[in-house]
Design a protein around this nucleic acid. Sequence first.
RNA 1: GACCCCAUCGGCUAGUGGUUAGGCCACCACCCUUUCACGGUGGAUGCACGGGUUCGAAUCCCGUUGGGGUCGCCA
Length: 432
Amino acid sequence: MAPRVRFAPSPTGWLHVGGARTALFNWLYARRHGGAFVLRIEDTDAARNTEEATRAILSGLRWLGLDWDEGPEKGGDRGPYFQSARKEIYRRYVQCLLDENKAYQEKGVVRFRLPHKVVRVADRICGTVHIDLSAEPDLTVMRADGSFIFHLVNVVDDLEMGITHVIRGEDHLSNTPKHLALYEAFGATPPVFAHIPLILNKDGSKMSKRDAGASLGEYIAKGYAPDALRNYLCLLGWSPKDNRELMALDELIARFDLDHVHRSSARFDVEKLEWMNTRHMMDMPLARFLEIARPSLGEIASSDPFYADRVLAVVKDKVKHLSDLPEQTAYFFRDDFPLDPAAVEKVLRKPGAADRLAALRARYANTMDWTSTTLETDLKALAAEMGVKPAEFIHPCRVAISGRTVGPSLYPMLEVLGKARVLARFDRARAA
RNA sequence: GACCCCAUCGGCUAGUGGUUAGGCCACCACCCUUUCACGGUGGAUGCACGGGUUCGAAUCCCGUUGGGGUCGCCA
């Protein structure tokens, strides 16, 4: 039987990275086993839910590349997928509990009679866990105002939606006996439970909603490639066991398995994410890079999209964050870019630099075939003629055309900028 | 506090009774080099502690400590 898994966020804010990882694990499990990934919005708490949060969650999942087979804006046979639209179903189940004396009314609320015994939880990841419910008070399932409590709706929906595997955060492990009791009361077979470890801050403290780096939105804004964050998140609590780390989506799908999910919580290490991010951007095809990088350039690129794409191609392997792009490529799009004073002092004012720059300008003025290979050949020939190392030309040239000492590989940069701009910048640098 | 889960370099992890305890990030040194990166080589750093079991424990058992979670008319 094809598995059916679900991600059931509550729309009270941005998608938490922990939640994003839970969604990812569920999604990978579904894709790996040819099952269905269901998205259900748990908006039973009308006071705290916002439509904005729902939108943020949907866009966050889409950004990560996690598409759902059933859910909001998609539909499906087991809907509706918003709990706020399923009240009739919950009412029916509660009535059933009441009819069978498995629940009772007290002060207007409905309480489910918990079995006061030790419950055995067979968890796919944590193994067998025994939890004693004998001292546990009965479970409230419906409020006096007729609204329903998480435990009830969560179980009812998983039941109604035919969920076969519940992959969720370990914070729910202690709640599981209660859920199991509910399944039993409904005469239903419970799904397989798999509780995944939680994500901690770098210092080992728990990552709560308000901590820096807790919201997926921060990573989107900062300009991480979804490919990289997905890869990183996947490795937090799961390991392919053979030291493989940089993996594209298809490999992740092919290899992900619940068997290799850890029991211990993991700390979020942004530095490793940074590394993974640059590596992913270097490794990905240019077309994919352009797709994710173009939005970061925004208005800057609008006047000449073709030129902007060529610029992006040149800086692709040097980018740390997509959000750095406007600043990092500024000199490609404007001629009045600032010249770094330290670079001017160190490189342009260096004895002989001005002469070499002038010579290079004269040489490039005659370069007809303005391509990186020819530009390289010409520069090296000139250096040989003057009896100095190419570096003596390269460094002043870089500062002259970009204003900085660091940047992309020189010749492709010259090619993209074009002859007119390059010569003009040589003149400007000489005047500086 | 009670109950539950967890414990290998600074971080993420491999490791399931016998290994010089491996890999990646970060760090240090060197190499490569047109800058910065990338890449390459080498280095430093680890089995939380205490008891057992065993010829032999990172690996199995118990305890301690530490971290996390759950105990709602939040989800």
